[in-house]
């Protein structure tokens, strides 16, 4: 595998993603974890770009970084006092969780390595047309119209439900 700029950037993104994810799961301070998660999300967005999914990358940045992450930070602020910022970790749990995760990782890696259909599929580097127009066609005027509507209803329901659950006073009827 020759060392090109593309490769360098790809590995950079991959490393950034994995390293920051590692920070997310290990760091004690929850605010640090949240910001580390932002880096991870940006890294994933970069990987999307490498997969020539430009719309998806944009959505990832807008929705995740602009929405979900802010939501998470709100949650951190509302639920944790200053002393609660530190995440308590128990040693036995850490060990068991690590073991299981490691086994899971090993399994996944062996599956990935041993699945014949997935071998030797190289990105040939051909430029593809921007996906936004086609995605719009597929969603609003194609086979994905119904799932789109369903998901929109789901999102609405989730937002109403979230507002209802997190409301401070639940008046008894």
């Amino acid at each position: 595998m020759e060392f090109t700029l593309t490769n360098f950037i790809f590995y950079g993104f991959a490393l950034m993603t994995i390293a920051s994810a590692l920070v997310v799961v290990t760091v004690r301070n929850i605010v640090h974890a949240a910001f580390s998660l932002m880096v991870t999300l940006f890294g994933v967005a970069g990987l999307y770009v490498f997969l020539q999914a430009d719309f998806l990358a944009a959505t990832q940045v807008i929705v995740y970084v602009g929405g979900i992450l802010v939501l998470i930070l709100f949650g951190v602020m509302m639920t944790s006092g200053r002393l609660e910022m530190r995440i308590h970790i128990e040693r036995g749990q850490l060990l068991l969780g690590g073991l299981i995760s490691l086994m899971l990782l090993m399994l996944l890696l062996t599956v990935i390595a041993n699945t014949p259909a997935w071998k030797n599929l190289t990105d040939d580097g051909t430029e593809l047309p921007p996906t936004t127009e086609r995605i719009g066609e597929l969603i609003l005027n194609g086979p994905f119209l119904l799932p789109f509507e369903v998901v929109s209803v789901l999102l609405l329901v989730a937002l109403i439900g979230a507002a209802l659950i997190s409301r401070k006073e639940v008046r008894d009827e």
Partner: peptide, 15 residues
């Protein structure tokens, strides 16, 4: 978390 742990352990075992 315990439940989840057991579930995952089960999955690993099954696989």
């Amino acid at each position: 978390q315990t439940y989840l742990f057991v579930v995952l352990a089960g999955i690993v075992l099954l696989i």
